[in-house]
Design a protein around this nucleic acid. Structure first.
Lengths: 219, 219, 219, 219
DNA sequence: GATGAATGAGGATTCATTCAT
DNA sequence: AATGAATGAATCCTCATTCAT
């Protein structure tokens, strides 16, 4: 009666997907805003227009939901970064990558906040996050960086992890510190203009970083 | 031995201070590790060798304790950064500042994680944190930055906030992302060597950033 | 049998109502017996055959439960007293009112105790109680009293509030002082016989009160 | 050192008595206002300008303090009522008694509220209260009442307990219902004028009650 | 798929009380 | 006589989760 009698086998009904995604959306926002422990299943359910009990029809528990949020958010990020694996010269694609990542994160601004939280607290999900997604990325990035650090480069191969990490800080920091800096700077760092500025700034910084070192290393 | 024989009447008894500080220490570590919501008063009390009820003899509630932790941690950081107010050329003191801050944070590695969490979640305490401590610092830093950005400088005055923020990301990111990167890179970013490397790297980066732009702005 | 076979869809399931009412019953008894502060949610829940957590599925907090108890108890009392509004001569309906109220309170003997407690402590709920229920009743009663206090009456219009209040004391006092007087007098003032006696006594007193004053006001 | 070196043996020092009485005063007010369970030792101590710990230097526990409050309040009331035992005609002394009690209660308006609370909740202290103080009084009052209820009296000997109780309700009710009626009537029943009015009203009522019944008992 | 009701575990906090100082 | 610190027990209430409907 309440369940449609047609196309019953056609995988989860349309409405199900919608609900599931709505839950994921709200969960992402809330987890990013208050952290895992600070977010209650009830809050997520309510925001998604559900009862907590109903939420359990879609996710087996709070942890699984959290993982699903992470996975859904991280996966496209990974794909976007896979360009690095193409072996092209980083300097060529650099600006595009920066702008691409910034653009993607701009549309999912909860994601970097969420990852930052996860990273800082070092929770249970961290290892998973690291092992499955970030580890391979990092390796590829380091390899790419080392490839291009020739004898005359500013940066040595040993500095590769530091440099890559630095970019992680620069990109994620802008999002995760946004609530604080919004207060301090008087403008929302997540506004389109601010994001464009930051994107431009990072590209400029990237160029600056790859300048050859002057003969006399004067600052 | 534990109780000094002089000035016995001055201020709250020695033992009280010890307890209070022990609570603050444990709370700082736990808050940084699990976030505010993820840390229970019971855990803090237990770690400090107390009953939860006893903890309330020292702090009126969890929130007040949290604020006390923040305040105690941030204050010395602020003082250390006040060098910026001396008006000296940033390039001169830059390296010292970076190394100084890194050294201080290295000894209180919970602090930047805590602040990062606070910043990312944008909790109630954020405004306070921003208004009282970070706002004035940021203004001073921006002013200092602008002072030295001459016509021939790489960075324009408009970029000052972005640049300062970037340094915030670079410094705090290293600490707040440490748990994640520790997994990924296979070495603890908070180890003395890693911190020394990072410090050196940042100083080098600072020098690189202040290089004059080549005539043709090619990357 | 316990579940009707008709109109199965109407309103919350039968069981819910039963539970809710069971909670209200137990809460009424306990609140009247030990006062608001002296009654724990756990006690109420246990008496109602529930876990404290379950109780919160029916009432959002202790306060809301208390208000619900008051409301449920006071409402029928009000309706019963609305006879006063019919404008009939008080002397005619007086005895019926007294007996009616006494009979009603006899069946809900917790109620007057509860109201007395509330009245004496002047808690937060008092204003509500006063404004919503007692105020209008009192006004109507005073008006009715004044209507019939003719020139030759024993009681002046100014004494109306005092007289009405006195009846409040006489009726509620019997219930609220019952635990004490039960000890002192050696019989339970809430037993059917005692209540009948009190009812008869009050009716007699009402008649006595409305006697014309003798010419010489000698006591 | 901290204790004066003179008159150390002269029973508890002056200050002690003062403190003890201050505690009793505050406790009386708070117990009457919020009931026993609703009043915390800390509140009492704070109101008396003490630490909870200090309060225990004066009373062995909360219960003992409560009993002391009751005792201190009830004793003078008893003494004042002992006039009833003199065997004088109740009608003679009636008005004086009423006015005397009202005057006394007016000065200790917390007391009747406190007793009403105790009476309504039927707490542990109730038996004590009843046995030690109210029982004998009640007996004396009933005896006095019966003595004067001759053949031609309005009230029978059987009604004596009811009549006495009624006076209890009338007198105590005025105080215990004061917070509620203050809201409803728009004037504080504990103000001097209101108390005078009530006193006058009760005296008048007493006279009215003792009128001979007309031949035809019509109302 | 949705939900109301139920619950054990745990949350923060208050309580009355003790004791060394 | 006063108090700061400590505490076990109890407070109200929320949590994630289950299950019958």
């Amino acid at each position: 009666m309440s369940t449609p009698d047609i196309a019953i086998a056609e995988a989860p009904s349309r409405g199900a997907y919608q609900t599931r995604d709505r839950i994921l959306d709200e969960a992402e926002a809330l987890f990013a805003h208050r952290g895992f422990a600070g977010t209650s299943v009830r809050d997520i359910a309510t925001c998604a227009g559900l009862t907590p009990a109903s939420l359990y029809n879609h996710f087996s528990n709070k942890d699984a939901l959290y993982r699903a949020v992470l996975e859904r958010g991280v996966q496209p990020l990974i794909e976007r970064l896979s360009v690095l694996a193409t072996g092209q010269d980083v300097h060529e694609v650099g600006p595009q990558i920066i702008e691409g990542i910034m653009a993607h994160l701009a549309e999912h601004s909860h994601l970097p906040r969420l990852i930052s939280l996860e990273a800082a607290t070092g929770g249970e999900h961290l290892n998973e996050l690291a092992r499955d997604w970030i580890q391979p990325l990092m390796n590829r990035a380091i390899a790419a960086f080392e490839d291009e650090s020739h004898a005359d480069s500013t940066w040595t191969a040993e500095e590769a992890p530091l440099a890559i990490s630095a970019w992680l800080y620069l990109i994620f920091g802008h999002f995760s510190m946004a609530p604080l800096l919004s207060e301090v700077l008087g403008r929302d760092p997540l506004s389109p203009e601010a994001l464009a500025d930051q994107s431009r700034f990072l590209v400029k910084l990237a160029k600056q970083m790859s300048l050859p070192v002057p003969d006399d290393g004067a600052a």
